[in-house]
């Protein structure tokens, strides 16, 4: 709890993110650029995965990681806000939602682009992972729509937190139910019980690209959070000025 409270201080957050966000932007962009350069020009193509089109993996897989990680992060932030009422946690949840939705769409779009030449279809209804990511997207949309419909910041925070927690409770069930469909998607091949089974030549660019996307995501979240904090301060300042005048 001590550490959580330390992070909950907006002043400390502003001071920290002042240099951390630019750092994340630069390192994230560099890693993504390196991963793309490796992926598009250096690594050999894999004919079992559709030839050159498999190079979309270096965006698709990081996007899938982030789609799942961002919903978990949003639910965790909502939980922290709901229990301890740290304002920063709500600001974080609010900032994560639109970004998570964007990476979810990125995952779906690159998946479709990969799927068309390899499986012969843009969309496969009985693929469990496509369905899971699609429902994740709807969970993000519902969260944003609910927040937008509330008439005060406090109510938006509470309603959003309740919905994010209900969603997080349901995610395992949704995942389990769509898994019961048969799947033509290739099985998980980066993280398995006996270590990664992907060739190292693909693994390194993929890991770096994943790290780069995560850093970029983190930087964007921090930027949105900073904007929200400054917006709130400006509103308070305006109210104070009006009251004084």
């Amino acid at each position: 709890m001590g550490m959580l409270s330390a992070f909950a201080n907006p002043h400390r957050f502003l001071a920290l993110s002042h240099w951390l966000a630019p750092l994340f932007y630069v390192v994230g962009a560099a890693l993504i650029a390196w991963g793309l350069w490796q992926g598009l020009w250096v690594v050999p193509k894999d004919d079992y995965q559709g030839g050159d089109i498999m190079r979309v993996m270096f965006i698709h897989v990081p996007a899938a990681w982030l789609a799942m990680a961002s919903y978990s992060a949003m639910a965790a932030a909502s939980f922290i806000w709901f229990i301890w009422r740290h304002e920063l946690a709500d600001i974080a949840a609010k900032a994560i939602a639109p970004l998570g939705a964007v990476w979810t769409v990125l995952c779906l779009a690159t998946g479709s682009i990969w799927g068309k030449p390899t499986w012969g279809t843009w969309w496969q209804w009985d693929d469990a992972r496509m369905m899971s990511v699609l429902f994740l997207f709807f969970l993000f949309l519902g969260y944003m729509a609910l927040r937008a419909a509330m008439d005060s910041r406090q109510k938006a925070a509470r309603a959003g937190a309740i919905l994010a927690m209900v969603g997080a409770l349901n995610v395992p069930l949704i995942k389990f139910s769509v898994d019961m469909f048969t799947s033509l998607h290739q099985d998980a091949s980066v993280i398995t019980a006996d270590g990664p089974k992907m060739a190292a030549v693909y693994l390194w660019p993929l890991m770096m690209s994943g790290l780069g996307h995560s850093l970029l995501f983190g930087a964007l979240v921090m930027t949105l959070m900073r904007a929200e904090i400054w917006t709130r301060r400006a509103a308070r300042q305006r109210a104070r000025l009006l009251a004084g005048a």
Partner: peptide
């Protein structure tokens, strides 16, 4: 809000 929860 409810449709994703209807999936299972």
């Amino acid at each position: 809000i409810a449709l994703p929860l209807y999936v299972p």
